[in-house]
Structures are given as C-alpha cells and as structure tokens.
C-alpha cells in the first residue's frame, strides 16, 4: 500500500473531534438505517412466528380456548372429570383497539415530522419545536396505554391446583403478546428520544440550523409507525382460522 502524508489535511483538522456536522450526520444516518435493518429482521421473526403458529394450529389451539372456563377449579376436580370442557370458543382481541394503537403511533410520527419541517424551514430560531416533540411523545404514551389495555384482554385461562396456579394462553394470544410487548418496547424508546429532543431543543442544542438529530429520530419514529401498520394489517387480515 502506497501512502503519502496529507499535509493539507493538517490545517483543517479532520480528526474525530473536529468534523463538520454534516459528516457526523451522514455517519449517524447510516447507523440508524442499520439499526432499522436489524429491527426489521426482528419484525420478520415476529411475523414468521405469528403466521407459523396460525398455520400449524397444533391441537386446534390457535384461538380456541379448550378446557377450563372459569377460575377456582382445581386439578383434582379436573382429573375427576368434574368440569365442562369448552372447545372452539374463538377468542380474538379487539380489532378496533388494535388500530387505535396503530393510529396513535402514526399520528405521533406525523407530529414529529411536521415539527421537523417547521424547524428546518424556520429562518430564525423557531421556539415551537419542543412543543411538537413533547406532543409526539405524549401520543406515543397513549399508544403504550392502549397497548397495555389490549394486553389485559389477551385470552387466557386459569387453572389452579393445590400447590400452583397456571395462566395459559392460546398461541394466538402468545403471538399477540409478543407483538404487543414489541410495540411497548419501541414506544418507550420513542418516548425517551422525544423527551431528549424536547429538552435539547428547549435548551437550544437543537435549533433551526442544527436539526440533524431530529431527522435521525424521525427516521426511526416513522419506521416504528410503518411497522405497526404492517403488523396491524397482518393481525387483522390473518386472525381467525
């Protein structure tokens, strides 16, 4: 490898701590896209799981609650045959609540995006961005709240015996719990990022001429919204059997 010393470089100090914001931004943009790529694979794994479990439907257990209908029965009475097995009661989560969660994520992404556009269009320091950032975080919090409500409704049945009690979930319920937990984890990250943007813009670290980090966060925020639309579509179109 032939090497020459670059003496012109010495004056502009392109060392790690002296780089132009555009250079740093380009690097961070690649990192965000790679992270989204990894997250995309995770989403793929969740979708694979959902569709696989629905496809195999082992022992007809995708959505049908089989066995104990109520709390309070014991395994002893189960074994004695003292129960009414209920089969093929299809139990599906609320589709409308599902789409309310998606809507909340999409709206929060849109709010951040509008805020970003305003910030970038502003000529002088625009003081409205912290408002957009905190509003987007608040709407993402609503998504978490709705998702927690949805998780409460995951069909489960309860078996108790003398020494232990067991909550059991259908495979549909399991897959929906996985998707719901994923939404919550993503929304928590969004909220932390949104709070960061709020404080940073309020302190002037982010401003009309230093908005790169807003765009980075928006990439991820929009991706989370898009993935929620994809997953919402899948769970609506391919729910029952």
């Amino acid at each position: 490898m032939t090497v020459t010393d670059n003496h012109t470089e010495h004056q502009d100090h392109s060392g790690a701590h002296h780089e132009a914001p555009e250079v740093v931004d380009g690097r961070q943009r690649l990192a965000i896209w790679l992270f989204i790529g990894g997250d995309f694979v995770s989403m793929g794994a969740l979708m694979f799981t959902y569709l696989y479990l629905r496809g195999v439907n082992t022992t007809n257990g995708w959505m049908s609650i089989v066995g104990m209908p109520t709390q309070g029965r014991t395994l002893a009475t189960l074994e004695a045959g003292d129960y009414t097995p209920i089969t093929n009661i299809e139990s599906k989560l609320s589709t409308s609540l599902n789409w309310e969660i998606v809507l909340a994520l999409v709206v929060s992404a849109a709010i951040l995006w509008i805020g970003e556009r305003q910030l970038r269009a502003a000529r002088t320091n625009d003081r409205s961005f912290p408002f957009y950032a905190i509003l987007a975080s608040a709407v993402a919090t609503v998504a978490i709240w709705l998702q927690l409500e949805q998780l409460q409704k995951v069909p489960q049945y309860f078996v108790s015996s003398n020494d232990s009690s067991v909550l059991m979930h259908t495979t549909y319920g399991s897959a929906m719990m996985a998707l719901g937990t994923s939404v919550i984890i993503h929304a928590v990250i969004l909220i932390l990022l949104g709070i960061g943007l709020t404080i940073r813009s309020a302190r002037g670290v982010i401003s009309h001429d230093r908005w790169f980090q807003v765009r980075l966060v928006r990439f991820f925020w929009v991706w989370v919204a898009v993935s929620s639309v994809i997953l919402g579509g899948m769970t609506t179109l391919f729910a029952g059997h």
Binding site: L53, G61, M168, H169, T171, G173, S174, M177, A178
Partner: peptide
C-alpha cells in the same frame, strides 16, 4: 405463553 408448548397449540 405457548409458543413452543405443543399441548397448548
């Protein structure tokens, strides 16, 4: 949950 539990689907 019952991802890998055959008796639960």
């Amino acid at each position: 949950t019952s991802f890998f539990v055959a008796s639960q689907g």
